[in-house]
Design a protein around this nucleic acid. Structure first.
Ligand SMILES: [Zn+2]
Ligand SMILES: [Zn+2]
Ligand SMILES: [Zn+2]
Ligand SMILES: [Zn+2]
Lengths: 163, 163
DNA sequence: TTTTGATTTGTTATAGTATAACGGAACATT
DNA sequence: AATGTTCCGTTATACTATAACAAATCAAAA
């Protein structure tokens, strides 16, 4: 399914990525009776400006420009909300946030992060997660949440920088 | 291979864990012609005081007590060295460090982290990593490094806190 | 053994990431 | 309009990590 991997297509119509993400967010929040306030909506849009994970402190100036208060709690609150709603994910290796390309659907994703261009793609990891949970249960461990993050080289960067 | 899973056995002889880790560290560094200086050795020993990941700033006071300088760079340098030598790992979800139970052997490990007691175990994840790399390559992505971290409940805590 | 160059450590300062706490504003309902 | 809840503004602070440079130590060569 391309909804995640489109990020590796360097000339895709990214405006459509953004619009789709915002539309889905609005309808999801409406359905859940959650408030996608102006700040939250703006933060989500900013996170979706690219497929590169964005640090919380990179969001602050844009909030200020838009006339909002711009202190760390503001952006972290918005990010917390968006994470709770499954609209963005946090990438632990980068201390950064990225939009989820298919929110709503309960999914098991891993992140493929390009070391060169920084693009991150959420790929399906259902099978791998099942395997890990199964191995863990053999040790008596009950899995509740998994974080799979992969560093490497994306197809674009491989092509442009043959070594 | 119990070397990793022994951490889930609540009454194991942990002194032996420590001694073995220190012995392996010494011989590995000797073999590689790397200097396991007093600071590095102490930091490693401190990390091995338990099977719970330890924050860098939790190490500092102990360094001070031992008469060493105790500013952040000191401990981070030691941790960097130990990571390069594969003697400790960093857990991104926790910003914390844990001793590797089988250094030297090139291995692919994931961390099973108990939400209740904080114990973390390094389990083999060769198969899962292979699966992920394979899926990633279908998207044109070349894997270089993986980070798999699992949150959940360990056997001891499950037993003691039946819900 | 002395010199020399490389590695390690001490030290100060600062960057980067995230949360606590509390009061006030906006919202949704009664 | 009154009320309780959620959200936001604001200040302060905690936590995590690195930059930069000088001093000390080490290891091998001269
Ligand atoms: Zn896009
Ligand atoms: Zn790339
Ligand atoms: Zn032990
Ligand atoms: Zn536990």
């Amino acid at each position: 399914m391309a909804s995640g991997t489109i990020a590796f297509e360097s000339h895709h119509d990214h405006n459509q990525c953004i619009e789709q993400a915002m539309d889905e967010a609005r309808s999801l929040c409406k359905a859940r009776n959650q408030r996608l306030t102006p700040i939250r909506e703006l933060v989500l849009k900013l996170v979706w400006q690219s497929h590169k994970p964005l640090g919380a402190y990179e969001i602050l100036p844009a909030l200020a420009e838009a006339g909002f208060n711009s202190a760390p709690p503001t952006v972290y609150r918005a990010l917390d909300f968006l994470q709770e709603q499954g609209l963005v994910h946090r990438i632990a290796l980068l201390n950064a946030f990225i939009g989820c390309p298919h929110p709503g659907k309960s999914h098991h994703g891993c992140f493929l992060i390009c070391r060169h261009c920084n693009t991150a793609v959420e790929a399906d990891s259902r099978d791998a997660e099942a395997l890990i949970s199964q191995q863990a249960s053999k040790l008596g461990f009950t899995t509740e949440q998994q974080s799979i993050e992969v560093l490497g080289c994306c197809p674009n960067c491989r092509e442009h920088a043959e070594e």
